[in-house]
């Protein structure tokens, strides 16, 4: 048997030889990374579609005012970025086996996500009040509203999912369940949601500011 072991080492040595994790990353984390890649492609396709229709339409509106639209969006960005920071802290705490601190940081992250959602929902209501619909808007090409609601809506859906996910992780952590890899995996997802916003913010908001 030991002879066989030696031969295996000789034949299949290294990360790709089997019986090991080639990336030194657990399956859950790696699986989440793959999910993020595919989800990133969904968002990429949608953003490219947005660019495509925007380029093809001469009457694309730029209705947002610097204040309040961009300022609100900036505050929302701040919420997401800060929640990412607290998430990093939660992951680090969980790695130190410090469960109370993990929970504290996780709830802070959830709070950041909820703040984002509240601000965003408020903004949607305001825009709907101004007459913006998926099929029309008072300012120009109807695709402005369509792509705005599609992109931010799908992102919002991701935030909602993330908040629920983090809630589950926080509760489970409180009960002494879930490994550090589980927390890290939820963190990856949360940062990804943040990352997507880093593209939606400039493309949808900054580039739609009304020229003075």
């Amino acid at each position: 048997m030991s002879d066989a072991e030696v031969r295996v080492e000789a034949l299949g040595a290294g990360d790709w030889g089997g019986g090991s994790l080639p990336y030194a990353v657990g399956s859950k984390k790696f699986g989440m990374w793959l999910f993020i890649i595919s989800d990133a492609l969904t968002f990429s396709a949608l953003l490219i579609a947005y660019g495509y229709v925007r380029l093809a339409n001469k009457n694309w509106p730029e209705p947002f005012e610097f204040y309040p639209s961009l300022v609100t969006a900036t505050v929302m960005t701040l919420c997401l970025l800060s929640s990412s920071l607290t998430m990093v802290m939660a992951v680090a705490a969980r790695k130190r086996e410090d469960r109370p601190a993990t929970m504290k940081w996780l709830w802070a992250t959830i709070a950041g996500g909820l703040a984002f959602l509240v601000l965003h929902a408020n903004e949607w209501l305001k825009l709907i009040g101004e007459g913006m619909r998926p099929f029309s808007n008072p300012w120009g090409s109807p695709l402005f509203g369509a792509s705005f609601f599609t992109l931010t809506g799908l992102h919002m859906f991701h935030v909602v999912t993330g908040v629920c996910f983090l809630g589950v992780v926080a509760v489970a952590t409180g009960r002494g369940k879930f490994t550090s890899e589980d927390v890290e995996m939820s963190g990856l997802y949360w940062h990804f949601v943040d990352l997507v916003w880093m593209f939606i913010f400039p493309l949808v908001y900054v580039l739609s500011i009304h020229h003075g």
Binding site: T42, A49, F135, A146
Partner: peptide, 25 residues
Amino acid sequence: ALLAFPVLLAGGILLVLDRVGGTSF
């Protein structure tokens, strides 16, 4: 599959919206 299906998903979302949401992608 991992890299191709998400793009169809995006297309599908837009097509559903065109059909039921009144958008014009």
